[in-house]
């Protein structure tokens, strides 16, 4: 893995980005050193903030974009995308 890399993914939400998945995302995002952003409908937040994630108001069927920069960017994007695609 190169010392610095970036990664990106888009996920169509199977469920609303409500409290429970937001909590999971925030805890997971805190474990990576990469700088991560989650974008929805023109707004972008740092996913380590559980309240900021909920404030996106992202609903089922809409698309969110995950971007990351840093040594573990790809792992961060993969992990967060997995949480979002399996959210209930």
């Amino acid at each position: 893995m190169s010392p610095s890399s970036s990664a990106q993914a888009s996920v169509v939400l199977p469920a609303h980005l409500h409290a429970r998945p937001a909590g999971k995302l925030a805890q997971s995002a805190a474990r990576f050193t990469a700088t991560i952003h989650i974008g929805h409908n023109g707004r972008t937040v740092n996913p380590t903030g559980v309240l900021a994630l909920m404030s996106l108001g992202a609903t089922a069927g809409t698309t969110v974009t995950i971007t990351a920069d840093g040594p573990d960017a790809q792992a961060a994007v993969d992990t967060l995308a997995e949480i979002l695609t399996t959210a209930e």
Binding site: G23, A26, Q27, A30, T48, V50, L51
Partner: peptide, 15 residues
């Protein structure tokens, strides 16, 4: 409510 949610998630992440 919001403060507790933010605190709990941060604590659970090892903050």
């Amino acid at each position: 409510v919001e403060g507790a949610v933010a605190a709990a998630v941060t604590a659970a992440s090892g903050g």
